[in-house]
Amino acid sequence: MDETALIRNAQHGDLDAFNTLVLAYQDIVYNMALRILGDEDLAADASQEAFISAFRAINSYRGGSFRAWLFRTVTNACYDELRRIKRRPTTPLEPETEDGDEVESPRWLADPNASPENQLDQAELEHAIQHCLENLPTDFRAVVVLADIQGLDYAEVAVAVKKPLGTIKSRLARARLRLRECLQAFRELLPAAFRLEEERDL
């Protein structure tokens, strides 16, 4: 069944149709929440909340990019989580050593399917990106995650964060600049990966 039919059925209360959409989108939703929140458990909670909200508000979807509409609920769920954390800070988002220092390359970031060397590279890269993302203001972070990590176009990002296109362009430019500056600090750690990608893009 195509996406439009699934959405239409879900709008008529068909939970199975909606759950088919959940299975199709849960990876990108979870990854987006993870990049914005920086914590697996919080990201899982926000993803679940986002899907619950999406089902309850499915009749407010009036066509256009379903992905963008769905990401709006995810963004809202993430903002809610961030507000909740601010009100009641609990455990640190990064694992710490016994001395209370932050672990540079936490094991929990590693992809278990990758080879040990690749695993380390991936973990370093992920840690670097996450660290720099978390240094950005939340609004900038959401825009850059949607545009550059999730691959949404400007119009979809505008729908997802409910801001005009001009604001999206401006925030994205600022976020890229700040990320570039921040990632400079990790250049020593990940030179090969960065350059290879750059050469491919050019």
Partner: peptide
């Protein structure tokens, strides 16, 4: 322009995680 392109290229390489569980309702 090269700086911006590099930042975007790094972000595009962000590793994707698998969901810890299904989020079906």
């Amino acid at each position: 322009l090269a700086d911006l392109r590099q930042a975007r290229a790094i972000l595009r390489r962000t590793p994707k995680r698998h969901v810890p569980r299904n989020f079906t309702l």
